[in-house]
Design a protein around this nucleic acid. Sequence first.
DNA 1: GAGCACTGC
Length: 771
Amino acid sequence: MSDIRNNPYLAHMRDGDAASTDGRKEGTSASFNALVPLQTTAAQQEAVENDECSGLTGRPYTQKYQNILAKRRDLPVNKQRQKFLDLIHNNQFVVLVGETGSGKTTQIPQYMVYDMLPQVEGKMIACTQPRRVAATSVAQRVADELDVKLGQEVGYSIRFEDCTSSKTVLKYCTDGMLLREAMSDNLLSRYSAVILDEAHERTLNTDILMSLMKNIASQRLDIKIVVMSATLDSEKFQKYFNDAPLLSVPGRTFPVEIYYTPEPERDYLEAAIKTALQIHAAEPEGDILVFLTGEEEIEEACRLLRARGDELIRRANSGPLLIVPLYSTLPPNMQQKIFEKAPEPRTKGGAPGRKIVVSTNVAETSLTIDGIVYVIDPGFAKQKVYNPRVRVESLLVSPISRAAAQQRAGRAGRTRPGKCFRLYTEKSFNNDLIEQTYPEILRSNLGSIVLQLKKLGINDLVHLDLMDPCAPEVLMRALELLHYLGALDDDANLTDIGHAISEFPIDPQLAKMIISAQHYGCTNEVLSIAAMLSVPNVFIRPREAQRAADMAKAEFAHMDGDHMSLLNVYHAYKGCAEPTQWCWDNFLQYRSLKAADNIREQLRRVAAKNDIPLVSNDFNSPDYYPLIRKALTAGYFMQVAHLERNGQYLTVKDNQIVLLHPSSVLERKPEWVVYNEFVLTKRHYIRTVTEVKPEWLLEIAPQYYDLSGFPPCEGKRILEKIVLKNAISLEEQESKKRKKEKSEKREKKEKRDKSEKRDKKDKKEKKEKRK
DNA sequence: GAGCACTGC
């Protein structure tokens, strides 16, 4: 343990003993003079906070600091500070449950800093968040609380942005970011403690990180782990972390009354609209939040609400309504509308106006709207599901869990007591809804995750200690994919290609595409395509201007297919003078294109770091596009469809009937295509499609196109013919080669014989001369 | 001739 005299917080207290309060004396006396381990009490910590100068910077505290300090002392978590410190002193893991408003996210990391003084050993404390905005905004708040400049002693680290310095002691970061760091520093040796926040959300990254921390903790007895969650499902966390102790901190929210429908609702959209209007007509002032499942449904609900709201206002003299849709793909300026105030009464003293926000799940966790008093919860959400049999991820409207329903209801009690109207029966809530939403790890394709785990040095995936183990078939699919990509060898160990792929923060297929592009001389172009495939759809198609949008899109169409069209869009975007206006004029999503540009730059850096040359072919060469398509094939040879003679596309190897997605720029139907996505809706579609040649498949991925395992279909027969033809020509080549070799041998032999004869002759002559 | 919950590296 370190010398406590190095403690920058406590150091100044030695000098100022005379002026000490009791609390400070408690801190000064026995503990640090006796060189005890770095363990503080709540009183010591508070004394340090009460001091005139900051222990971190040595500067006097500002008035702003003092004002915030008063509020911090009032947080529920502060009353449990001593209890928390006792637990963390005596345990490697602590589970902390704290509801909204407990102050856990801002305070616990600070308590840890005071207690562990990571800077003494040149280390840091990390606190992870599932979302970027949370990481940045909380870091800013804590920097203010500690009276330091953001990016100095307190910082954050998210994709595209590292706001830390050599002085940083406390770092907020996304959980994905910490995972990336662990890939190059398997034991996270730069950290003396890791705090995992919002663990109840059970995102893919949080689950992997929990497993990783458990593993690291068994090898590093000096590291402390705090797992923070908002739900009461704490037993599962405690059990998982070797029966860790639990600390519960009450939240600070207002009570929310729950109402259920007496009978099940047949049409939840209709019921939601009716309920909203009833609230408007009968309930006191306060805004309404309605949860629906997707963009189309939300826009439809807004239309109906506006129409019927107008009628209500006319007939019943109700207050004016502001109806706002909210979903993530909504342009930012439209998203800002949710923060507008409810409209004023039409006449002085008239019925108050009201705001109704109709939102997807984005309002459940990611965005907080002030002033919401009423929540309407139909009980559904779109959720990701993964079907390993057909290797397809899709979105399905499904009932939410009880935990999610609780979370939604909580949105009504942020500023004052509220009400939540559940559009299902109480019986249904208790009997039909599952307790918790299935964690993401059980609903995802794990290709990328398995590769990351390998890179993290975790080889035994079957015995991987996860809170919810994933299905063996999902693991098999992931290993299979990585093996075919050449990322894993026959013993499932990382290959050189695998190491390279894992460096890229994108799907393994995309990374393989980039790595392969160097052999086709087109890394520049393929980087652009990979970036465009990693962002949300760039094409906008408003209902009221569909034809204009389609025409704008046609300008970018490339006859080889959608990938090349994306490349056209990217090039045009890079070449335009005023990006925002240009995007607007061309029905393109500026946000997506900007993101693509950002990602491309990141990918370019990773490529450069891995010695992948950044090259392009001559644009005027006839091979310019075919070579790009070959690189595409090197990543996506597992996603190929063949046009059968009956006019239907069949996926190769799975023999699924699929249709070209109507958004495709391909007007004809090429015989062989690679596709980026399999979309499962009413029908099976392949989306983002480009023409390829069957010869390429056999040439680029012979290990995958071992046709003996393929189900019979036209595509297979054609590939077999090519294999045969290749074999024949190979045989011909071989025999030619053999003939050539034979004749060469003969010639050589003749030469040799001749020279030998000559030598003999020479020797003979020499001999005779000597004689 | 159609859809796109939400995050994240």
